[in-house]
Write a protein that binds this DNA or RNA. Structure first.
Lengths: 82, 82
DNA sequence: AGACATTTGTACGTATGTATT
DNA sequence: AAATACATACGTACAAATGTC
């Protein structure tokens, strides 16, 4: 995770989209591996200083893109097929 | 709109899903026509006694299903191709 | 069995921004 | 100028399922 992995509330992209880009980059970088769980919502909230509703919005976007999938009561996992 | 078009907070389906079914039925019934705007978020909030965030969730679900599409600052429209 | 922590699901209300009418 | 309508973000609360001890 680099120094650029920060949310700018004033940025052109909405924070929930910025976070999506950050997470996508982290997955591409191998921070989280396919088939394995990534950070929980709560962890992302703490790491990026966003509200949980905002983090959930990001995850919904990543699910749409097929980058991750959510297992209820378990966590969010990196898709194997991307 | 019939007497069954009401949200039951205790129902099996979550309110945002109940509303999706209601709207789908109303579209099928012809309450709103393809290519034309349906009720605004605020109107749905008032008509069904839900929070705006809940109504938006319903709309997101209907967009996913391809039943409606949203034009920012204009309204939510019934898809022509369904 | 039971208690407990973790994690996602759902819903509420509020505030501000932006674009259109 | 004002009203309308969607976009985004914040915080809060409780429920349900899971995993652990």
């Amino acid at each position: 995770m680099g120094p650029d992995d920060e949310i700018d509330p004033e940025g052109e992209l909405a924070p929930f989209r910025q976070l999506a880009e950050i997470i996508a980059a982290r997955i591409a970088r191998g921070d989280w591996l396919p088939g394995r769980p990534m950070a929980s919502e709560t962890q992302l909230v703490q790491q990026y200083g966003l509200a949980r509703s905002t983090v959930r919005r990001t995850i919904a976007l990543l699910v749409e893109r097929g980058l991750v999938y959510v297992v209820p009561q378990r966590g969010t996992y990196v898709s194997k097929d991307r």
